[in-house]
Write a protein that binds this DNA or RNA. Structure first.
Length: 565
RNA sequence: CGGGGUAUAGCUCAGUCUGGUAGAGCGUUGCGUUUGGGACGCAAAAGUCGGGGGUUCGAAUCCCUCUGCCCCGACCA
């Protein structure tokens, strides 16, 4: 490609509200332009990068035996009512009405459509297992679109769905897809981690997220430094402490804490560590209020709480009025000592081994010291309630956990029979009896990968693409070609020679001054740059610089070709 | 959904408090000088000041209303 024939649209200024690096750099490089909230136009430059990602995804899915197809982006309401998701998906589902007043949605995902396809197409167990996939635009009406294409409403996604007669078959395909994902993200040149994920309300058997490690990531992940263990923070188990609870050593006392409500305030005021305090959360259970007790330095894990039998899937904190009515005290002074018997007290494993701890006294302005379980406070049961923290032991017994930020770019999921059951997707088995199929689903956020790569690889000058994602591998920059015909000719010849060797090359023949040319090429992240100049021509060398290097070096044409081979 | 902010030239933003003929930088066009890290000079084009309503002799500026966009919050005791 000759840049003089291309629409390169770099800009110097970017809106103040473009907050994260990848969003700013994509705008500056002219890869995307915003059309409306969460909607972006991909320029020729941006699309070149997205197509690179798409192609690697496609090749690896094909290699893994998945079959590409294409489903409509618009889906009929009736199908979504069959699975109950027309209501359940909520406001993120963009609903549309056609001129006949028939209702549709713009697909946020395609379980309904593919399962409908499968129930019509698949009749016999002999056709299984089978994996279908598509690469297609999705729409989710996000509550808060932000960070450019990282959390856009419209985005490009690869979604795959597998169909099986047995759980064993699903497990095999799941493993194959997992391996395909490892290949994809490795080929893309990204630093990533496959982490165990919570299966959520769908309740499948296994799920992994593929997370690109980056500080701007929206997800927290926990990983062991002594093993392969890695899990989403929502899922990571906090091991039970090995120590036994000490015997009570001191008597229960009530002390005045007139204005100390938070753990930080109480522990500072009473000169005890937060680890020696118990914090109590009152939440609305399935049947009245429930108390959850944690060590003062720990945080509640909402997903773990949601799995308790006493609580709904999404627990909600009690209001100040409810708390006052139930305990006689305001938030900040609640504790397990002297709670009404009607409120179950569920205690985190770590809080349960404390003795002589500090907690709220259920009287405004008063806390207890020297409190002890059983002697002073009921324990209905002990559970894992908290999020793990840096330094916790790994649940698999090997190493210590660390916390990192990640960007979720892929998700593999053993779905089970939920959708096949709802849509009655069956095949006949060896005995001729109909069996509901078992399913898996496997997603990759193609457009998000582009942003995630920039988040992971950039410097002050701009983007640093991994070779596999770069819009071009090599840029040939010619200095002052208009005044020096020999330089123009040499640049053209080098461009032809590289192109003929199958090396994707862009020729910067715009005739810009050197500074402007270099700034653009660095901003758009081309991995290799070659400068053709009067100076180099006289010396008989080319000036080469890798995007990641800070110095140029002189190469002969042969050396350049072998380097780029 | 709750709270806050914002909307002015193609882009990024001043001007609004204190009403009085619409501004800058970047970009664009033309001419000239330049040509190895985002050059310089001269000239030029370019805005229903988000929409509607009101107050006023007079509104980008004050008031009401609608819309778009952005930020913060949704697990804190």
């Amino acid at each position: 490609m000759r840049l003089s024939q291309f629409h390169l649209a770099t800009v110097k200024e970017v809106p103040a509200d473009a907050e994260i690096t990848s969003h700013r750099l994509m705008l500056r490089a002219g890869m995307i332009r915003r059309l409306a909230s969460g909607l972006y136009t991909w320029s020729p430059l941006g699309l070149r990068v997205m197509r690179k990602v798409e192609q690697i995804v496609r090749e690896e899915m094909d290699r893994a035996g998945a079959l590409e197809m294409l489903m409509p982006s618009i889906q009929p309401k009736e199908l979504w009512e069959e699975t109950g998701r027309w209501q359940k998906f909520g406001d993120q589902l963009l609903k549309i009405t056609d001129r006949k007043q028939q209702e549709f949605c713009y697909g946020p995902t395609h379980e309904e459509v593919i399962t409908d396809f499968a129930r019509n197409e698949l009749k016999s167990y002999r056709q299984l297992p089978i994996v279908f996939y598509q690469i297609q635009t999705k729409f989710r009406d996000e509550f808060r679109p932000r960070f450019g294409v990282m959390r856009a409403r419209e985005f490009l996604m690869k979604d795959a769905y597998s169909f099986h007669l047995s759980q064993e078959s699903l497990a095999e395909t799941y493993a194959a897809m997992y391996q395909a994902y490892v290949r994809i993200f490795t080929r893309l040149g990204l630093t990533f981690r496959a982490v165990q994920a919570d299966t959520g309300a769908i309740g499948g058997n296994a799920s992994h997220e593929f997370q690109v490690i980056a500080d701007a990531g929206e997800d927290a992940i926990a990983f062991s430094d002594g093993s392969d263990y890695a899990a989403n923070l929502e899922k990571a188990e906090a091991l039970a402490p090995t120590s036994q609870r000490p015997a009570p050593a001191i008597a229960l006392q009530r002390v005045d804490t007139p204005a100390q409500k938070t753990i930080a305030e109480v522990s500072a005021f009473l000169k005890v560590s937060p680890q020696q305090c118990v914090k109590t959360l009152l939440v609305r259970g399935r049947d009245g209020l429930v108390a959850l007790c944690l060590r003062g330095d720990h945080e509640i894990n909402a997903v773990k709480a949601g799995k308790l039998a006493e609580l709904p899937d999404e627990s909600v904190l009690a209001s100040e009025e409810e708390i006052l009515a139930a305990t006689g005290a305001r938030p900040g002074f609640i504790g397990p000592v002297g709670l009404p018997d009607s409120i179950p007290v569920i205690v985190d494993r770590d809080a349960a081994v404390l003795a002589d701890f500090v907690c709220g006294a259920n009287v405004d302005g008063i806390h207890c010291t020297g409190a002890n379980w059983d002697r002073d406070a009921r324990v209905s049961r002990i559970a894992d309630l908290r999020s793990v923290v840096d330094g916790d032991l790994s649940p698999d017994g090997n190493g210590v956990l660390h916390i990192a930020r990640g960007i979720e770019v892929g998700h593999v999921f053993q779905l089970g029979r939920k959708y096949a059951e709802a849509l009655d997707a069956t095949v006949v088995d060896e005995t001729g009896k109909p069996q509901v199929m078992t399913m898996g689903c496997y997603g990759i956020g193609v457009s998000r990968i582009v942003a995630a790569a920039i988040e992971q690889r950039h410097d002050d000058a701009g983007i640093i693409w991994p070779e596999a994602m770069a819009p071009w591998r090599v840029a040939v920059c010619v200095i002052n070609p208009k005044n020096v015909p020999a330089v123009a000719a040499a640049g053209e010849a080098l461009y032809q020679a590289l192109s003929q060797r199958g090396i994707e090359t862009v020729l910067d023949d715009r005739g810009l001054r050197a500074g402007g040319m270099f700034a653009d090429i660095e901003l758009i992240g081309i991995p290799h740059r070659v400068v053709v100049s009067e100076r180099g021509l006289a010396a008989g060398t080319l000036e080469y610089r890798a995007r990641e290097d800070s110095e140029s070096r002189a190469l002969s044409q042969e050396e350049l070709f072998s380097l780029l081979h």
